[in-house]
């Protein structure tokens, strides 16, 4: 048997084992809990899909803004100007040290009392600010990991700071930080469930609502878990794909 086949066999055994464990859990539980899958999720599928769509929407927007915020502050942290550094560091310190749940409440009820914002906008603002703080740290690390010699070389040939970042530092930073960024964005998708606290109709909220309305809690929670897993697993695959695309062999 060659090595490739052996690897596949091991993979197969690992998956079979996991499925068996899950099956035993399910079987044990169904002895006492009357699972009724026809009702939940299938009868309520449209609602779950709406929640799924909302989660997807706030996740995509927040990933975009978190990336923009993280890039701006990450670059500021590597700046030679102390004031930019201080500003960026303060931002990170504040948002990394407050729980996301509290940020959501402050943004929605605090800012929301000054200007009318919808729950969706409140959630996107909170998630972007919170995750942006982590992203900025990741990007800073990526920029600082570029060997110093390259910066010196760029300066010697007279490259401006703008092009130093655009052509030399950021592209390399992106490549090295891709795994960390993917992990952060997977966290973001899961963290978006906290937006249910402001009654935003996203996946978790819908799941809880159906659990209460249908007297079928576990079916609903398991359904929600499967939906989240779908998004995060896809993100993980996408991350792997880009890692391979950008890898220097």
């Amino acid at each position: 048997m060659n090595k490739l086949n052996k690897n596949y066999l091991q993979k197969f055994i690992a998956y079979a084992l996991l499925i068996l464990i899950l099956f035993i859990f399910y079987f044990e539980m169904s002895k006492t809990y009357p699972f009724n899958w026809q009702k939940v999720p299938f009868k309520y599928m449209n609602l779950y899909l709406e929640g799924f769509y909302m989660t997807l929407k706030i996740s995509v927007f927040s990933i975009f803004f978190a990336l923009v915020i993280g890039m701006v502050f990450g670059v500021m942290k590597t700046s030679k100007y102390q004031i930019l550094k201080e500003l960026a560091n303060t931002y990170t310190t504040i948002f990394r040290n407050i729980p996301l749940l509290v940020i959501i409440l402050i943004v929605y009820y605090g800012i929301g009392s000054m200007i009318e914002i919808s729950a969706m906008v409140g959630a996107i603002i909170s998630l972007s600010l919170f995750e942006g703080a982590y992203v900025s740290e990741i990007i800073r690390g990526g920029i600082e990991a570029v060997p110093k010699g390259q910066v010196d070389a760029a300066k010697t040939i007279g490259l401006s700071t703008f092009y130093l970042y655009i052509d030399i530092l950021l592209p390399q930073a992106f490549r090295t930080t891709l795994p960390a960024l993917t992990g952060q964005f997977i966290s973001l998708v899961k963290d978006s469930s906290l937006a249910s606290v402001i009654a935003l109709q996203e996946l978790t909220m819908v799941g809880r609502q159906i659990a209460t309305s249908s007297f079928a809690s576990f079916e609903s929670y398991i359904t929600v878990a499967v939906f989240y897993f779908t998004i995060t697993a896809l993100l993980q695959l996408l991350g792997k794909f880009f890692e391979r695309r950008f890898a220097i062999v």
């Binding site: 009868k43 309520y44 449209n46 609602l47 009654a199 809880r208 609502q209 209460t212 309305s213 249908s214």
Partner: peptide
């Protein structure tokens, strides 16, 4: 959001 049977959502 829901407090069946007083108020909840249908399919």
């Amino acid at each position: 959001p829901a407090y069946a049977p007083f108020y909840g959502i249908n399919e």
